[in-house]
Amino acid sequence: MTGLLGPAQIRALAAKLGVRPTKKLGQNFVHDPNTVRRIVAAAGLTEDDVVLEVGPGLGSLTLGLLETAARVHAVELDPVLAAALPETVAVQAPEAKDRLTVLAGDALKTTVADFTPAPTALVANLPYNVAVPVVLHLLATLPSLRHGLVMVQLEVADRLTAGPGSKVYGIPSVKLAWYADSRMAGKVPPAVFWPVPNVDSGLVAFTLRDAPPAAVPREDVFAVVDAAFAQRRKTLRAALAGWAGGSAVAERILRAAGVDPQARGESLTVMEFAAIAAARRTAVSEPPEAESDGRVAR
């Protein structure tokens, strides 16, 4: 049975390594075994899963993942922590040491070639400052992923899982929805971390599915999303004017996609954004209408 790390062990290990958690790397280490077990259970892992963990830190969650998963690939930016993780696992869970692979480097620069066997699940306590970019990069890069669970700042968790019409629905919400169905899987209090953060954390669970059947690449759809939310208080007719080449052109594209030009991005589903991107390619090419009334579109 794997020996999970408690508060005293976490601090002792950090002291041994000369590690002082830094805000720059977003280092807040989980030191509560019950929270680790809760995360692993919420991830719904099977004995066949190959888990990708980003930011394993001192190894508290890594040890919990190795209790269930077939293998764990751990990507750690801090070279001291990356070098120490195999030894920690060898001491705490010697029977699992051969099922751990550690990659010292930046998760945002990883590619599919970095992992053999290919990961099927992403489970991680992600640094708050890079959580969204890391999740979206890995989903775009690793087609083998099927499901996952990430712990992020609660505010970020709310944004990732928000639906159309929500005040916090935005770019992260839509882009995650392109890849997966997501849901909030619980809250995590600050007290289970060292050092203690000044915010609550949230667990985001997601299950991959086929991308929307759009006739355009993901990059084209994401360009529409970025444009729509860059000026989220404006109507889509106005917000997409720069992207489309004029507000009149934007209106024609929106109508061709079956979207109200007076709507705002926060009301659209990922399918509607995909339809807009597709309509841009097929919209009738006509000169933009003159806008001579001097009014500012809102």
Rank of each mutant, 00 (worst) to 15 (best):
residue 150 V to R: 07
residue 131 A to R: 05
residue 140 A to W: 09
residue 132 V to P: 04
residue 163 G to Q: 09
residue 157 A to S: 13
residue 162 A to D: 03
residue 137 H to P: 04
residue 160 L to G: 03
residue 122 L to W: 05
residue 154 L to C: 09
residue 151 M to V: 15
residue 121 A to Y: 01
residue 128 Y to F: 10
residue 125 N to G: 13
residue 132 V to L: 00
residue 157 A to V: 11
residue 137 H to M: 07
residue 155 E to A: 11
residue 136 L to R: 08
residue 123 V to A: 12
residue 136 L to G: 05
residue 124 A to F: 08
residue 148 G to R: 00
residue 131 A to S: 15
residue 131 A to E: 08
residue 161 T to P: 02
residue 153 Q to M: 11
residue 142 L to W: 15
residue 130 V to M: 04
residue 160 L to M: 12
residue 144 S to C: 14
residue 137 H to D: 09
residue 162 A to H: 00
residue 155 E to M: 14
residue 142 L to A: 15
residue 139 L to I: 10
residue 132 V to M: 02
residue 144 S to E: 13
residue 134 V to G: 00
residue 129 N to P: 00
residue 124 A to C: 15
residue 150 V to H: 07
residue 135 V to F: 04
residue 124 A to T: 12
residue 140 A to K: 09
residue 163 G to Y: 04
residue 131 A to F: 04
residue 122 L to C: 14
residue 159 R to L: 00
residue 145 L to G: 01
residue 162 A to G: 03
residue 146 R to T: 08
residue 152 V to T: 09
residue 121 A to K: 01
residue 153 Q to R: 12
residue 139 L to S: 10
residue 133 P to H: 11
residue 152 V to W: 02
residue 146 R to E: 14
residue 137 H to S: 08
residue 155 E to N: 13
residue 137 H to W: 04
residue 135 V to T: 07
residue 160 L to R: 02
residue 124 A to L: 13
residue 134 V to D: 00
residue 159 R to N: 02
residue 131 A to T: 08
residue 134 V to Q: 00
residue 146 R to K: 11
residue 142 L to K: 15
residue 133 P to N: 03
residue 163 G to L: 04
residue 136 L to N: 08
residue 134 V to I: 15
residue 150 V to A: 10
residue 132 V to K: 02
